[in-house]
Design a binder for these strands. Sequence first.
RNA 1: GAUCUGAUAGCUCAGCUGGUAGAGCAUCUCCCUUUUAAGGAGAGGGUCCAGGGUUCGAGCCCCUGUCAGAUCACCA
Length: 586
Amino acid sequence: MSQELSEQEVIRREALEQLRALGIEPYPADLFEVNVKSTEIKEGFKSEGDFQEVSIAGRLMGKRIMGKASFAELMDPHGRIQIYVNRDEICPSEDKTMYNDVFKKLLDIGDFIGIKGHVFKTQVGEISIHVKELKVLSKSLRPLPIVKTDADGGIHDAFVDPEMRYRQRYVDLIVNDHVKETFLKRSKVISTLREFFNSKEYLEVETPILQPIPGGAAARPFITHHNALDIPLYLRIANELYLKRLIVGGFEGVYEFAKDFRNEGMDRTHNPEFTVMEIYVAYKDYNWMMDFTEEMFRKVAMAIHGTLSFEFNGKTIDFSKPFDRVSMYEAILEHTGVDISGMDEDALRKQCQEWHIAVDNSMGRGKMIDAIFGEKCEAHYVQPTFIKDYPIEMSPLSKRHRDNPELTERFELFINGTEFANAYSELNDPIDQMERFQEQLKLGERGDDEAMFIDKDFVRSLEYGMPPTSGLGVGIDRLVMLMTNNTSIQEVLFFPQMRPEKEQKAASDKPQVASSAEAAGEGRELSENEKLVLKNLEGAEKLDLNQLKESVGLSNKQWDKSLKGLREKELIKISKTEEGLFIERV
RNA sequence: GAUCUGAUAGCUCAGCUGGUAGAGCAUCUCCCUUUUAAGGAGAGGGUCCAGGGUUCGAGCCCCUGUCAGAUCACCA
């Protein structure tokens, strides 16, 4: 039943058949030559005589029919342009089918057409294409939502339901111009980064997504299974350890735009798969990387906004000044008034409890300091700020600080209270690395389910020697959110993860019988409950409604539905008299 | 994971105290040769998310479920 077509879908399918009956193939195989973009015409048309022979294709997005002439809107990948269709122009002979039937009746909003003609300006002053030839390129069988903008710029009937927009992103892209804009910017962010790295001769590489040991970050992985090897494999949570192996192998700078996968919660800022850019450069340290990161973020802002200061979520973010650089202990001191640098694990736990920060015994020093920072400090860093020098316990892949062995040479970049980048002077001492992994193992035994695995091959690679290296990871989705002023990650992913749509079961149970006669109403099959009611009515002229209800034994809801159904089909009649409610067959 | 909100025509949304489901756009028919949110006249279109309950009677009240959104928690 649910598979029945809506009226509008039926009409379009009929139009499809009529086109074929007229000898017009609605899905032709041959190419249609396009020689211009809508934007080129709009920008380039200066006077009559320009663009005398254009050939352009796109989706029909609006029709305004006025008798023997019409205006319509054509949408190509670049924008919309108005077309003018005159009956006697596209039908020079006596046969006016192409205009009267094909254009006016059989073409619908959403159909792809190709047109040839010349450009002119209407009396109202709109640059339009005067159509001489029109070809059907592809018929659309479902009605598109029609979003209209009025003279004052107000938007009507917008296609706005987030669920439908994400599930049917293709419709969202057709109908909502700003959505396409977001994804064009996303592409621009990525290409800007790529060009920046390539200009420095860093090498773009690809490393495994399926990993036997999910390393390089603290997160819960997805597990899968390889049949031929009969081993578990993990979808990567980071690509760090592989990129560092490549530095060991002798590359001076490598980077990768990577899809990472984390089996954790989903919300406005987290999707199970997301994009991270990681870059590693030999002979550099984290101070150099801070400068590099600043330059990189400025390049992106310039590419997207053409300026270094821009709006995000009602705030002005400014990249023009040097980014602040604050150590983690300083940050906590500044925002709590407490110096935690000398506290051991027990003292920290007490301090956390005092601040009502949830802690448990699985948490080591590192996790607790991270929790304090997250709770007390993070939100304050609206303008870009590097938080640096993290405690060693929370940074097992980062080199010890040159001045303080309790700290590491690590920084994160915060903008608008959110982390955008994470970087280290990479740990290249293989013995220290092995010890750090073992510390992680202990944390794991205490119940920290995010503690890292030991990757022995990675340690082995370090034993061959890795030059001093600095590495950086940037969350691309978050960066795109920042650059497109979106507060939801789903807005910057074409296809955000959604729960699967529920199967419409009734449809597959039955072979599709919905011929148009049945769909029309009278002949529609009775439901089981409706049949039951009719059966109980048999042999009686007229029954008391409540008696019948009792003898049928349906739930109130089902009873009500069945009666409504039968009444619609005009099989029963219900009458109310002074004696009560009565039901009879018609 | 918790709380709140929502689900009605192809789209956007109304729907009063519980009493035969409404509007605009879209669709269909007719008129109209430079319109532009085109216009005029008429018509059709609904599993009110699903299931149960209360009631003579539920789109509306109650319960359960599904899906989504927001906030919070968790999490890099």
